[in-house]
Amino acid sequence: MSQTFEASLAGDPAEAISPEELSEALGEVLSSLGLESFPIEANTGQELDVSGSVTISGEWNGAVQMELTDASQRGTAAAMFLLDPDVLSAEEIVDAVGELVNMVGGGIKGMLPEPSRLSLPTVVQGHDLHLSFPGMAPVLRYARASESGPIAVTIWAESSDS
C-alpha cells in the first residue's frame, strides 16, 4: 500500500511519506490531547464502529479516514473535553471525533503538494461499517493503541482506474 501512496506524490522518492512518519504524527496529535499511544498492527482485529473522514482536493486528491471503536471514541472525546466519558452527549462525542480527524487530516494535507483544500469532517457510526470513497482507492493504513482502544487511519487517493 505504502508504495502506491509514495508513487502518488509526484513519483519523487524524496517526497515519500512513510507509515511510521504518519503514525508518529498521529501520536503527537493524541499526545497533545493528553492521550498516550503506541503503534499497533494496521489491522486492529477489533470492530471499528466509528468512522470520521475529511477529503483533500486540489493538487492532490484523496481522503483521510479515521476509525475507532466505541470505547476509543468515548475515551478520546473524554480526554479532549476533560470530562468523564459517561457524561458526554452523543453530539459531543461526534464533535470530538470530527475535530480529531480534522487535526490529523490537516497535518497530512500539509505534507502533500499544494494548493489543496480540506473539507469539513464527516462522522458516521454503525456496526460492521464499510465505507468507500468513489473514485479513490486505499493506499496506506496505520493504527495506534490508546488507553481506551485502537485508532486506525486509512489514506485514500484518487485512483487512476476511475
Binding site: S32, N102, M103, G106, G107, G110, E114, P115, L118
Partner: peptide, 26 residues
C-alpha cells in the same frame, strides 16, 4: 487551525492576520 502550510500562512498574513497557530499546539 489544523493547517499550517506556507500557502495558508501567506494568505493569512496578506489578509491581515497577526499569526497562525497550527494544531496540535501547546
Amino acid at each position: 487551525t489544523s493547517e499550517g502550510s506556507d500557502e495558508m500562512r501567506g494568505r493569512a498574513e496578506s489578509a491581515g492576520a497577526s499569526f497562525l497557530i497550527a494544531k496540535p499546539f501547546t
